[in-house]
Simulated scan of single mutants.
Amino acid sequence: MADAGLTVGATAGRVGVTVRALHHWDEVGLVSPSLRTTAGYRLYTDADVQRLERVVAYRDLGLGLDAIRAVLDDTSTGIGAALREQRVQLAGQIDDLRLLDERLERMAEAHERGILLSDEEQAATFGPDWDARRTGQARVLWGESPQWAQFAERSASRTREQWRALAGAMSALERDLGDALDRGVVPGSPEADALVERHREVFSHFFPLTRRMQVCLGRMYESDPGFAAHYDGVRAGLASWFRRCVDASARAQGIDPDTATWQ
């Protein structure tokens, strides 16, 4: 080999890299073949291969080509110092990967559980009447929908304090709906429309709620025994009244509530 040299292909096989990598390292002046055949083909000498092996060793440690060049060519650069600098950079990457891993774990749990709070934390956050099984039931019903995915994606980064604030906003809205019903607010009136819009804005913290989706929710509040019991527990007849308010607001926006679908 010392006399004849190795072709590019043979050298690539010897050091375990691609021919393309050798061409690139040649182009950037990191390692170039020292010999040529009479036909003009480039050949790597034994010294060239030894340098390539060092390049591969430092590349596998994560050094970039400029850092490798400095280690191999600049006698003023201490190899130990260069490697320690690489360790500092690697430590930062490890921290970033650890944070990414934690975020991925929370996202996976959010898709599986919905709310990333323990049963005790949920009771403390949402009140003693809250049933922690609700999110599990919701996942069974809507776990394949885009809205569940959006709910999970937002839930993954939501803190307990943010859940508490959102629960407070929902409770305040329900109280105001009950008060409006007591005062005889008429569906379709400006005050009723404002409450409907407020409901849509608050609910959109879970996933984007269109007006047509809101119509579907209004129907469910009235027809589903669990939802009807909840809203009628706030005020008798609230579920039906709110459904009429949502329908009237939808009509004002050019939406027929009788034909509206979940979109």
Rank of each mutant, 00 (worst) to 15 (best):
G254Y: 04
G127T: 07
S171E: 09
Q89G: 15
R164C: 02
L209R: 05
V234G: 00
G78S: 15
L117E: 01
R51W: 10
T210N: 04
F203Q: 14
E112W: 04
R158K: 11
L100R: 14
F151W: 11
I94V: 15
A108C: 07
L173A: 01
L22A: 08
A91F: 09
G5A: 10
D60R: 14
G237P: 04
A12D: 04
R98A: 12
I255V: 10
H24P: 06
G64Q: 05
P190Y: 11
G40F: 05
D3S: 15
A47F: 08
Q253Y: 11
Y221K: 04
I79L: 10
E109T: 04
F242S: 03
L217G: 11
V55C: 02
E191A: 12
D232A: 11
G13Q: 13
V234Q: 11
M170Q: 14
R133S: 15
P146R: 08
S171F: 08
M170D: 10
T38I: 15
G143P: 02
V215L: 09
T11G: 02
V15I: 08
E161P: 00
G184V: 02
H205C: 11
V8E: 09
S76T: 13
Q122T: 00
D193H: 13
W262I: 08
D193E: 14
G80L: 08
D3A: 15
L22M: 03
Y58R: 04
V31R: 03
L177D: 03
L52Q: 03
R51S: 07
V71Y: 11
G127C: 05
A149L: 11
E120V: 09
S223M: 12
P128D: 10
I79S: 06
E112S: 12
S118R: 03
A57W: 15
S249Y: 09
L116T: 02
W163H: 11
A47V: 08
L195K: 05
E53N: 12
T11H: 03
P190D: 12
S32T: 15
A229F: 12
R200W: 00
A2C: 01
F242Y: 13
R200Y: 09
S171C: 05
A192K: 04
T37N: 09
T75A: 15
R160H: 02
H24C: 03
R164N: 07
D232W: 10
A194D: 08
L195H: 05
A132V: 09
G143E: 04
A132Q: 00
G78I: 02
L100A: 14
D247T: 00
R154F: 12
D131L: 07
T7Y: 07
A165Q: 06
E85W: 04
Q263H: 14
R84C: 07
A228T: 06
S118H: 08
D95C: 05
Q263D: 15
S204N: 03
D48G: 05
T18F: 09
G136N: 04
G29W: 12
D179T: 13
R69G: 05
R219Q: 09
T210E: 06
A91L: 14
R243D: 00
